[in-house]
């Protein structure tokens, strides 16, 4: 029989401890990644309105691409896990359905985000 690592086992599929931990890790990373994002847009950026060409220039370097993918991923995880937490706090009963919807929604937004990034690179 396959011996799954302990991380993937436990109570149901909810993995409370792991989502809690990921929420902390994503929070810590967002402090950095979002910080750079805002800094890049407001401080580093000289012109009044952000233009396509500027954005494209930034995204021509690999670290920036990575930065935005991470920002997207952790931002979405943090946001949607946060929403889920609020709902459970309020006494949510239909947990599995909600998780399903949130995952689909999150994945969709991630797809949209990645699509946008690709648009800049191409």
């Amino acid at each position: 029989m396959l011996n799954f690592p302990r991380i993937l086992t436990g109570e149901g599929v909810l993995l409370n401890a792991m989502t809690w931990l990921l929420q902390r890790i994503s929070a810590a990373l967002l402090l950095v990644v979002l910080g750079i994002h805002i800094w890049a847009l407001y401080v580093f950026n000289t012109s009044e309105v952000i233009s396509f060409s500027e954005a494209r220039a930034r995204l021509s370097s690999a670290p920036y691409v990575l930065l935005y993918v991470l920002l997207l991923f952790f931002g979405l995880f943090h946001a949607f896990n946060g929403v889920y937490t609020v709902m459970v706090d309020m006494g949510l009963k239909t947990r599995k359905t909600t998780i399903g919807i949130l995952i689909i929604l999150g994945t969709a937004l991630f797809g949209i985000g990645v699509y946008s990034i690709i648009q800049f690179i191409m």
Partner: peptide
């Protein structure tokens, strides 16, 4: 620890 680690346990504390 498993009892308190469930959804209605410690994770509700903010």
């Amino acid at each position: 620890l498993k009892a308190v680690g469930r959804s209605y346990g410690v994770w509700r504390c903010h």
